[in-house]
Structures are given as C-alpha cells and as structure tokens.
Design a binder for these strands. Sequence first.
DNA 1: ATATGGCATAACGACATCGTGATACTACAT
DNA 2: ATGTAGTATCACGATGTCGTTATGCCATAT
Lengths: 107, 107
Amino acid sequence: MDPQVEYVPLAEYFKVFSEPNRLAVLEALHDGPLNVTAVVDKTGLSQALVSKHLKLLTIAGVIERRPEGALVFYEVLDQGVFQLVAQAEQLLLASRRQQLDALAALF
Amino acid sequence: MDPQVEYVPLAEYFKVFSEPNRLAVLEALHDGPLNVTAVVDKTGLSQALVSKHLKLLTIAGVIERRPEGALVFYEVLDQGVFQLVAQAEQLLLASRRQQLDALAALF
DNA sequence: ATATGGCATAACGACATCGTGATACTACAT
DNA sequence: ATGTAGTATCACGATGTCGTTATGCCATAT
C-alpha cells in the first residue's frame, strides 16, 4: 500500500465480498459453473436477488457470464478469490482468539 | 467455505476493508504505532472521522488501542492484514487485465 | 483551580445498499 | 403464433453507512 494512493478502487473490490448473500452466491460457484436457477436452488435466495449479485460479481470481474441457449452460466474467473476469502477467514479466527485472550488477561 | 454456513461474520470482516478512508487509516499504521493526532496528520482526515475509523478497526480486532498518558496509540495487531490487502490488490489488477483482454477480444 | 491539547461521542443530513414484488425480455418448444 | 421456463430489470421501502459540526471528557501543565 502506497502512501498517497487513492484507496477507492481497492475499497470497492473489498465491498464485493462484504455481503453475506453475495458470498453465498460466490461459494455456490466454487465447484464449477452454474446457471442462475441452479444458484437459486443451491442458495435458497430469490431469483431477482441472485441475478443482482451475479451481475455485481460479473462487473467486478470476479465471475464470467456465459449464455448457453436459454440458460446463462456463471463461472469464477480467478480461483484466487477463494484464497482471499480463506485468508480473511484465517484472520477473522485469529482476531477472535486474540480478543478472547485479551479478555482472559483481565482476570 | 462450507455450504450452509452463515457468511455474516465473514462479510462483516470484509466490510472493515471496504471503505477508502478506513484503508488510509490502516495504512497510516503500517510502519508502527501512532497516536490519533499523528494519524490525522498523516491522512489529512478530520479528527472525528479518524477516531471513528480507529474505533471500528479496534472493535474488528484489527488494531489495538493503547492509552499512554494523555495520548492514545493504535497499533496493528496482526501484520497478516497487509497480506490480505496485498492479495486483494493482486486480484484487482488481474481482474482489470482480464477485462481489458476480454474487451480486446471483441475486435 | 483552570486552561489547554488530545481524543471520543452525539446528532444530524446525505447518500448507498439490500431485498422484494412485479414486470419485461429471450430462446425455444408446441 | 402462442406458451413457457429462465433470466434481467424496475420501482420502491427499509435500513445502514459516511462525514461534519458541535460538544464532552480526560490528563497534564500552569
């Protein structure tokens, strides 16, 4: 991270992952491409909502939209996003541990 | 990422990094602990805003608050957060490249 | 005891985002 | 040509977030 950089684009990118249902949609695509209805079934979210999240993920360049006949398939472009998510999970766990330790240290 | 997990906490964690000024505040602490006024000077943000972001980062367990006399120092707890940020920057760059390639492929 | 610098918080307005229900569009089958 | 399943989009209400201004609070110096 450079000193006087604009953090707007980076913040926008993080924002992509800052919504629970959007993470669920992304996870639904973890094991391969799915069409919209399949994502709807897998997540239990409404069709309109799934379409919205898929569009956002597409615009962000995280997934790719591929129409096939009457269906539209979506696929994760760079598997690295799952590393990012995994790393965030790690940090989250670590920070929880730390907070418990800090709490315990009060006694 | 597990199928039927709650993604709320993870999304909340990502949300911490989804704000430009908050990233700037975090970056200000990259090279060591600083007190509030120092962060204000380094970022050019208002004091009230800096305090807010520092509080959020503290609650999230990303930084630690350490009062010292009249001053209050803040310090990054786990340097791993910078890896997370760096990884996101990487992915962002890659996805931009990809989008340009996709655009170029149209001609 | 009072003044001052450093920090935190409250109240507020502006704006963004989320989810829903309804509707439109598209490709294909009949 | 009409119907239908799959997908996208619109309009809307509800809620959340950001930044500011103003004020409160604490530690220290005078």
